[in-house]
């Protein structure tokens, strides 16, 4: 009995406990990221943003949650019921599943697998299914058009994201996310003879690729200016037209979880993960997870500003940008990086 407990139950309990802890922290973070998104948007337009629920509107997201959960879910009569309800579940489950491999600090990761970055890439390429299923199952024109658009968009930008990831992997030499962060301890700055600092991180050495990744991440997560799947001026609300109450909230949750994931991924790939910006004792003393959250929040701040500043792209321009600009550019930088690494012997 003892042996059964320690081989079957105990490992499962540990994994469940860790996952719950991460999920609760993540959902809290997403609640405040949502608020931050609205506040940033409001600030750019010189409004106050949500400020009624709680001090400075701090509980707005929880009020929204209550509103969504207490509403009645409406399923269209001609909808494909099973797929219609499955779609938001797929979207949210996949978006949250990716977090299993994201390291928040040295050793703070639920599954420290060798192919971590591939896992993230694979799962985020599956997220398109939530949208296609939702659009198709609604059995209505606007959702279907939105689903087709978004599927084409996500598949297109995955290609350039893939090449960007390969470029980073070339400089690191490992697919493990923790290794990718630790490899940024020494980089361009140390090669130039400077002490370990933020100049070592990949953003400087791979600056053009960093920009491509940032813009592709916006397109991959359907953020403005690439939010064509839900372009309200043309498609009402895209694939979400027929959804309301809890299923709608799950789509939103999945979307924001994917956005926060892209922020975390940018932090890991380009901004040195949990490493402090300068190697000084009082900065080293700050826990790594604080640095990680700070950097991810900073990337999200950029996401929020882009949403407020940039007008929406036209669909053909979006496709052109993905296939005719980012794909050749990222391929070019991949080859350049490979040659530089080979010729200088840094690899």
């Amino acid at each position: 009995m003892d042996q059964f407990f320690f081989t079957y139950v105990w490992p499962a309990l540990i994994i469940v406990g860790q996952s719950l802890l991460l999920l609760v922290a993540l959902l809290l973070f997403i609640a405040y990221i949502l608020l931050a998104d609205r506040k940033i948007w409001a600030a750019v337009q010189m409004r106050r943003g949500p400020n009624v629920v709680g001090p400075w509107g701090l509980f707005q997201s929880f009020a929204d949650l209550l509103k969504f959960v207490l509403k009645e879910p409406v399923i269209p009569a001609s909808a494909n019921k099973g797929v219609f309800l499955l779609a938001p579940l797929v979207a949210v489950t996949l978006a949250l599943a990716t977090w299993a491999v994201i390291p928040l600090n040295a050793g703070w990761v639920i599954a420290n697998i060798n192919v971590g970055i591939l896992y993230v890439f694979a799962i985020s390429s599956l997220e398109v299914y939530g949208i296609i299923m939702g659009g198709w199952a609604s059995n209505s024109k606007y959702p279907f058009l939105g689903a087709l658009r978004s599927a084409a968009q996500m598949v297109s930008y995955e290609v350039s994201i893939g090449f960007v990831i390969v470029t980073v992997l070339l400089t690191v030499g490992s697919l493990n996310l923790s290794d990718i962060v630790m490899a940024q301890n020494t980089g361009l700055g140390t090669k130039l003879g400077l002490p370990p600092s933020l100049l070592d991180w990949n953003w400087l050495a791979l600056f053009p690729v960093f920009i491509i990744f940032f813009i592709s991440a916006l397109a991959e997560t359907n953020r403005p200016p690439f939010d064509l799947p839900e372009a309200e001026s043309e498609l009402v609300a895209g694939f979400m037209v027929e959804y309301g109450s809890t299923p709608y909230m799950m789509f939103m949750l999945g979307e924001y979880s994917a956005i926060v994931l892209m922020c975390a991924l940018t932090t890991i790939l380009f901004l040195g993960g949990w490493l402090p910006p300068v190697d000084v004792w009082f900065l080293n003393w700050v826990p790594g997870v604080i640095w990680f959250i700070l950097k991810a929040s900073m990337v999200f701040f950029m996401f929020g500003l882009v949403k407020a500043f940039v007008p929406r792209y036209r669909y053909d321009q979006l496709m052109r940008l993905g296939w005719k600009v980012f794909l050749p550019l990222s391929l070019f930088f991949l080859i350049v990086t490979a040659f530089v690494l080979k010729l200088t012997g840094w690899a």
Binding site: L118, Y119, F121, S125, L126
Partner: peptide, 11 residues
């Protein structure tokens, strides 16, 4: 496993 997901399922 991951390539199966990326190539077959994702594309």
């Amino acid at each position: 496993a991951m390539i199966l997901l990326v190539v077959y399922v994702g594309a």
